[in-house]
Structure formats: C-alpha cells, structure tokens
C-alpha cells in the first residue's frame, strides 16, 4: 500500500548539504499497526513528511497504492494527501475558530463533498471516537484527550489509506495516553484502519504489531522477539 525504496532526503543549508535520510526502505501493508521510534534529530519528522506527502524524497521512490509520487504536481499531491493520508499531530492542530464537527468536516470540504453530506459523515465519526456529545464545542472547550479524539475523527473522516500519527500522545498525561492508544488499537483491530505511529514513547511503540527504529537516517525493523531484521 505504501512503499519506500532507498529513499534519501538531503537539505541544502548554505553551501553545506546534509543528508537526513540515508536510503530508507519501508513497506506498509493494509491493516498494519506500526510504530517508528527514534531520538530527535534521527530523521523521524523528515520521514513522516515524505510518508504524509508533504515532502518529496531527494532520491529513491515512494509509492502510495502503486502511484509514484515523484511525478505528481503540487495539486495532485494535495488531492492524494486529502484522499490517502489522515494526519494526527502531537499538538492536535485543530482550527480554534471552528467547532469539533467543522474541524472534522475539513478534509471532506477540500474534496468537494456537500456541506450536508460532510456534516453527516463527520457526525458519525465523532460518535465513533466518543465525541458525539461535544460536536459543537470549540477546541478551547475540550480537554487534551478530547481534542485528540476529534483530531482522530478528522483524520479518518475521508476514509484514508493510512492514518499517520506524529507523537499522538506526546502532549497527553499517561491516563489519557492509554485512552487514545486504546482508541487507535480498536480502530485497527475492529475496522482494519492502517496506522503508522511516530513516537519516542516506548510504551506506545510496544503496543504496535510492527515496530521500527530510526537511527541516524536509517530505518530498522524489529521482530516481535526484539531482534533486529
């Protein structure tokens, strides 16, 4: 479903070129629940930006559902991001001026769904994440855990191929972290949502079926027994 082959990404900072990703290979299949762990500066965010179609590799190939993203125009990339990727961010990134349900509607709006249909679908998603009662609340009226539930509903509203969560529990207390993780695991097991979590919390990573480490720009998959592959 998502495949990276020898992906490299380097940045030009003045005269110096720094390579952040040194040939990353990754194959995500439908229904995966996967974590990528790594210290800061390891290239986590760069990798996430490429997987999330916000950035393109300097070399190597990235396929999403057998489409090579290298040759896509910015508009096509936006459209693909809209349909295939659902983002969940560490600091939620809900638009403060919009209510919960309006936030959830956003991906559908940019897809051209009518207002009525979008609100209906968004309402269903909010029910699923347990936020049906607070759909007209503004983000400022919600707790951290509630905001993240709304963000998860927003990520899933467009039925994406991949839910990409960047430190989804980074801003939450342990109790709420457990709640949010339960929700993600449930979505994976019950609805088969493909989930990739980028985290540096080993407890979060441990709950995922496939676990990866990123270290100095290279990705290493660990087997369930803890051995590197």
């Amino acid at each position: 479903m998502l495949r990276l082959e020898d992906v490299r990404r380097s940045f030009q900072l003045g005269p110096v070129t720094t390579e952040v990703l040194h040939g990353v290979n990754l194959n995500v299949v439908r229904g995966d629940l996967m974590s990528i762990m790594g210290p800061s500066g390891s290239g986590k965010t760069t990798l996430m930006n490429i997987i999330g179609l916000l950035d393109r590799p300097s070399s190597g190939t990235c396929w999403i559902e057998e489409r090579d993203i290298a040759n896509l125009r910015d508009d096509e990339l936006s459209a693909l991001r809209n349909r295939k990727i659902g983002f969940v961010f560490q600091s939620f990134h809900l638009l403060s001026q919009l209510s919960a349900i309006e936030n959830v509607c956003l991906p559908l709006v940019y897809r051209g769904t009518t207002r009525g249909a979008a609100r209906k679908r968004a309402g269903t998603l909010l029910e699923q994440v347990g936020m049906g009662q607070r759909k007209n609340h503004r983000p400022s009226q919600l707790s951290g855990g509630q905001k993240q539930r709304v963000a998860i509903a927003r990520a899933l509203v467009g039925n994406p191929a991949l839910l990409l969560a960047d430190e989804p529990t980074g801003a939450l207390d342990p109790e709420t972290t457990a709640d949010v993780m339960d929700l993600l695991l449930k979505l994976n097991t019950e609805q088969g949502v493909t989930i990739l979590i980028i985290t540096h919390d080993s407890l979060v990573a441990a709950q995922c079926i496939r676990q990866m480490q990123i270290h100095q720009g290279r990705l290493i998959e660990q087997t369930a027994s803890g051995e590197d592959v």
Binding site: R81, N82, F87
Partner: peptide, 16 residues
C-alpha cells in the same frame, strides 16, 4: 501560517 499549513496537510490545494 499554522492554520494554512493544517489546511494544506488536510488536502487544501494552493488555489483553495
């Protein structure tokens, strides 16, 4: 800027 970036991440095109 943040709001614009979020909208772009959610699939808004430049022209949107």
């Amino acid at each position: 800027r943040m709001e614009i970036a979020i909208r772009r991440a959610l699939g808004a095109r430049k022209r949107d």
